[in-house]
Design a protein around this nucleic acid. Sequence first.
DNA 1: AGGCAATCTTGCCTTTCAGGCAAGGTTGTG
DNA 2: CACAACCTTGCCTGAAAGGCAAGATTGCCT
Lengths: 209, 209
Amino acid sequence: MTHGSPPDPDGGPLPGRRERKKLATRHALSAAALQLATERGLENVTIEDITARADVALRTFRNYFASKDEAICAIAADRARQIGTALLERPASEPLPEALLNAVLQHYQGTGQPFGQESMAAIRLIAGSPAIRGEYLKINAEMQDALAAAIGERTGTDPGTDMYPQILAGAVIAATQVAIRRWFRADPPEPLLPIIELALHQLTSASAE
Amino acid sequence: MTHGSPPDPDGGPLPGRRERKKLATRHALSAAALQLATERGLENVTIEDITARADVALRTFRNYFASKDEAICAIAADRARQIGTALLERPASEPLPEALLNAVLQHYQGTGQPFGQESMAAIRLIAGSPAIRGEYLKINAEMQDALAAAIGERTGTDPGTDMYPQILAGAVIAATQVAIRRWFRADPPEPLLPIIELALHQLTSASAE
DNA sequence: AGGCAATCTTGCCTTTCAGGCAAGGTTGTG
DNA sequence: CACAACCTTGCCTGAAAGGCAAGATTGCCT
């Protein structure tokens, strides 16, 4: 067993007890990590603490995650990989720019509220702790790849051959991240989605290369 | 003494013996790390090996770098921070898009050759080893910030207030990275600069959001 | 049911990392 | 020259990282 990704990325029709348990363990670990980190601060949490709360052996942690950071970011990472499907679910009639905008907005609004409390805590933790920054950047890169793949699929270009999907995805993700950073520091708080929308519009007008 | 940045980032007029020694130690450590990693592979190098080759105490390593990865990427990181000045050195008469293109090209061509052998080794190592990827992404982020600051200075916008410089910088860096990735995997090898140029042009036409 | 293979969990172990602390040497300065 | 600032180093402790094998669980087939 390696670590880094959920046990069963694709939603097979019959997960089976084994897969379900693995997902449960994985989630328990990352949730415990996130809780403890928000409670005490990341530095004051050992992997042993995390496994204690998740009620598994210390050694088991390492079957799932390579580091504390990875465990904490797991929810965000799992979520990040789905941004591609958000794009693919946009109606084919929508022009690509609009579809991208909507896919990103949808990805960052979840079902109803701007973010679940879990995610909020994660975001604050990530943004506040430089230690997790590396992990966050990896997630970003994954989002970019996922989005590029979706763009390629939608436009019929192969990301392996043509750089265009990667470039477009990279630009969109970069702009979105700038928006998120701004939103995070906004005082008084501002809603996130309009900032993202603005950022993506500015990216368009940044066609000045 | 903390670690993460060169001892004296700004080139003061009189470095003094102390600063010079620190720079020398720092460079010796990162060079040793790079050499050893290319020789044996990253996994087969301990910090102790590095300090042995650089002829300093193990404990000293930690005064300069937080990890092996950071040491290996130090040259690249130091270099990355200079991309901003590359832009600022472009003549003010040049339109921003052109200035950006030229600044990036210049940054990636160094003095004469495409890359020094050191840098080449570093790049192959970084691209080949997922372990260093996090560190590489951090460097990217630094490049983005440096470039954004320069863009802001050049256009008279404050990156703290206006997202535009950050967005533009993010898009440019992202496109450049895509180009580098493509260049790295090109078989047979292709020259880097034309690929970067193509990527930045595609970014322009990707104004389709 | 029963058995077999795959695979997960766990404990044990060794190596390496990480960083606080204080002693001793070097450098910069009045 | 004396003093302050600062680096290097050794020592030490706690945590992380991961190989390995025994035991348990699960999936699947007969």
